[in-house]
Design a protein around this nucleic acid. Structure first.
Length: 505
DNA sequence: AAGTTTCTGATTTTT
DNA sequence: TCAGAAACTT
């Protein structure tokens, strides 16, 4: 929702005078819009000497909120601090700390320091050690630190370095040990806003409790169905116990979905329902067009990648590059979609390999999240030229992990590897939480505005082993009427045998 | 230092 | 399987 209207629930969330508010905002419900409107609205009646603190999880989210606020208010001039926990804590330490220099150590710096401290350790052991320290700093910080934590902190501090976890930990210490700082923070930041509340970890929770106290006000917004970061210490239980933590609380549920076609909303809603421990009323669709939920089963991971590529080619239709090649200008769905409308999502980064190969063969411009596409060398001049042309247009198919897709939306989404051992992840020696895996699929499904392809491969190679996988059990929780099985599936059923040889096109 | 071979171990990731 | 680290050679 980009226009300035608010639906009833959003308006309630924006205008409520309750001391504390928990906004449950599912996918596509205008979360950022609502939060921004509320901050702007509350700013109008804010005492001149008071301030608002708005916490986001990523720099990108902070920038987004900042620019929205600027666009709305013209200027913010110090009335609102918008930033991540880390930015906020850094500013606290610089403003109220003991005055020494504070240099932020990037993870590479920390690794370098650790290598110097424990030269005998292998890379893997070092990584485990740093993970242990980080876990203590963000989750177990109330118990005694592991010996390595103290050693590492001392070494970092010798160069005035603080790692990311240290910023929060030291800010907590500052608030606990210096009552005038705490009083000052509480006096100024009378309203606190927290985005993605289902993703906070114990140290962040502690910081919020401390700085809000009994008199401050907090508005938290989030969606427990999209809690996918437990592995790094996030704890969605803070969402559940919000009412105990910040009494009294008004709960507001945003139910209207402005992103996805109504049938896609039904499908994702059915799929996620069994991961919940409470009954949640279904979302209400505000997009009334029909969507498409296509379920496709490929023979192999390679065939899966080809299916994705061919489907995109069909949907993009006779754009110049393809019409030149095939001599055909007319084709089904021509002009309906452009490359930027597509996302290809997967559970594991190494699933990108086959996909990348297929995209490279096709000449379709694509990007892989976290990889820079700039310095590639092409063995095909034509291919290179095409890519450069497409880059100018800025239209690329986006390949990324399910995790990385959170917060984004696309007209068409492919979720690859919808099969056992990947969703839920069940590789040997890996203990994954099936509920969290289900939420991960939910995040992926709810990225789609109009077309969603749930793709699986019967046979795939992972870490040198070949797996024969049944489709993901999560798909069974979507009613049959909503799923359209693609033609290949039909062919396979009737013609039988030899899946690899199926002629797709 | 640079180039070779052998080994290892391998989700998901922001700050 | 295969990329990157460790171990080894020149």
């Amino acid at each position: 929702m980009t226009h300035d209207e608010l639906n009833l629930e959003q308006r309630r969330a924006v205008e409520s005078d309750s001391q504390n508010i928990l906004i449950i905002a599912g996918p596509g419900t205008g979360k950022t819009h609502t939060l921004t409107c509320r901050i702007a609205f509350q700013l109008q009646t804010l005492d001149p000497d008071k301030k608002i603190l708005a916490i986001t999880f990523t720099n990108k989210a902070a920038e987004d909120m900042n620019s929205r606020l600027k666009a709305r208010l013209g200027k913010i001039d110090g009335k609102v601090f918008v930033g991540t926990f880390h930015q906020w804590c850094l500013s606290l330490l610089r403003q109220y700390g003991r005055g020494g220099e504070i240099r932020v150590a990037a993870p590479e710096d920390v690794l370098k320091t650790a290598r110097g401290l424990w030269p005998g350790m292998t890379k893997g052991d070092l990584r485990k050690c740093l993970e242990k320290v980080s876990y203590w700093k963000s989750v177990d910080f109330k118990s005694d630190p592991p010996r390595e934590a103290a050693v590492l902190s001392q070494a970092l501090r010798a160069g005035s370095f603080y790692d990311f976890d240290d910023l929060l930990l030291e800010a907590r210490r500052l608030l606990l040990e210096n009552s005038s700082v705490l009083a000052d923070v509480r006096k100024h930041y009378v309203q606190v806003y927290v985005d993605e509340y289902q993703d906070i970890n114990p140290i962040q929770h502690e910081l919020l409790k401390l700085s809000i106290g009994d008199t401050g006000r907090i508005t938290a917004i989030g969606d427990p169905d999209q809690a996918i970061y437990a592995f790094r210490g996030s704890d969605a239980r803070f969402f559940e116990c919000f009412e105990d933590d910040f009494f009294p609380v008004e709960k507001i549920h945003l139910r209207e979905n402005y992103r996805s076609a109504h049938d896609l909303i039904s499908a994702s809603g059915q799929m996620i329902a069994s991961a919940r421990d409470v009954n949640v009323p279904p979302q209400v669709a505000r997009i009334y067009q029909e969507g498409l939920l296509s379920v496709h089963r490929s023979a192999t991971d390679k065939a899966e990648a080809e299916f994705v590529v061919h489907t995109i080619e069909q949907l993009v239709g006779g754009t110049s590059m393809f019409s030149q090649d095939s001599g055909r200008v007319e084709s089904h769905g021509e002009g309906a979609f452009s490359f930027g409308d597509f996302a290809v999502l997967y559970r594991l980064k190494n699933q990108a390999r086959e996909l990348k190969k297929a995209f490279e063969r096709s000449g379709i411009p694509f990007s892989v999240a976290g990889e820079d596409s700039s310095g590639e060398d092409f063995d095909d001049d034509l291919l290179a030229q095409r890519k450069i042309e497409q880059d100018v247009l800025g239209e690329r198919v986006a390949l990324m992990t399910l995790h990385a897709s959170k917060g984004l939306e696309f007209e068409c989404v492919f979720v690859c590897g919808c099969e056992e051992t990947l969703l839920p992840l069940g590789l040997e020696g890996i203990a994954s939480d099936p509920q969290e895996e289900r939420r991960l699929l939910y995040v992926g499904m709810t990225r789609a505005k109009s077309r969603l392809y749930l793709v699986s491969a019967k046979r795939r190679m992972l870490y040198g082993k070949t797996f024969e996988n049944a489709p993901s059990p999560f798909l069974a929780d979507i009613e049959e009427g909503l799923k359209k099985y693609s033609q290949q599936q039909y062919l396979k059923k009737t013609k039988k045998r030899d899946d690899d040889q199926i002629q797709l096109f």
